[in-house]
Design a protein around this nucleic acid. Structure first.
Lengths: 159, 159
DNA sequence: CTGCTTGCAAAGTGTTTGCAGGCCC
DNA sequence: GGGCCTGCAAACACTTTGCAAGCAG
């Protein structure tokens, strides 16, 4: 119900096929998680995923969702992003979203005032990534952290 | 004991004077927190601050430290940085560290493998800040989030 | 004295884990 | 049918909060 167009269904299938290929088990819980995450516009945390999975696969325990997300992250099919202080958000990895290389991940901005999460194209951070790699030999992975600040709406409203 | 040179003492005094100027109360707990934070090389989380405060001002409760840190942050004398998933780290605000404008904050990198926190000069992020402000009207505040990735040491060690 | 601060305890989030049973392959 | 996955409950890490007593100004 989350997504009904064919391109979307195929994303879940890409992930499922990948699980199968690697000898991982396809369970109702895992499939449900993948289906829920199959909406690039959402920024769901574990709690919200639990709630949505409950709608389509009742009885799935919270701990199972956490374990499924952890396993899928290990397999690099799902990524999680830490947002300031609150629950991490999850989405399908770029490998699944866009099977064609290069798998340039996208990043997130989060407004500390209203909590809104904004997607950020990867190339906006590319020069910083390069800079940190060259100067400090630090492999910055933008997809793992949301950049905190104030969004345009809240900025205008500010005292 | 954390710092004994005079320049350091004066930083605490700058903060204390500022508290006084604004009619805030100077309590043993608050002073202890400021003294603990008066070491720019440390990246302490609340728990570690609690432990260190206990050494110099026994009996100060954990909740008091959290409240002191929150109050000091409200007053913009202390800043906290969210590091991926784990406890936030705190330090004196630039206003206190370097009373002369411009108060360019510094940012933090954190290695997701070893947990090490690395300071990053503000100018490394300046162009990104400008870019986000110009293109998205987003006021990115680098001091509030650590950028996650892999440090040089762990990078070499990687499989 | 006035009321901001503290201590204490308890609750609130977000996430992880040990164990026994269940189901995928 | 072997072993990964799940459900359940409890523990865990981090942080917040209500209330009464305490101390700064």
């Amino acid at each position: 119900m989350a997504q009904s167009d064919t391109s979307t269904t195929s994303r879940v299938e890409v992930a499922v096929a990948e699980l199968r290929r690697r000898g991982e088990r396809i369970t109702p819980a895992r499939r449900a998680v993948l289906e829920i995450l199959d909406d690039p516009s959402l920024h769901l945390n574990a709690e919200e995923i639990v709630a949505r999975v409950a709608e389509r696969a009742p009885g799935v325990h919270r701990a199972t969702i956490y374990r499924a997300l952890a396993r899928l992250a290990d397999l690099e099919l799902v990524t999680h992003t830490h947002v300031g202080g609150s629950a991490a958000i999850h989405h399908l990895a770029e490998v699944v979203l866009r099977p064609d290389p290069p798998h340039t991940s996208h990043a997130h901005l989060q407004c500390t005032t209203c909590g809104r999460v904004i997607d950020l194209p990867a190339d906006a951070l590319q020069s910083l990534v390069t800079h940190l790699a060259d100067d400090l030999d630090f492999d910055f992975q933008p997809e793992h952290t949301a950049l905190l600040g104030t969004c345009s709406t809240c900025r205008r409203r500010r005292s």
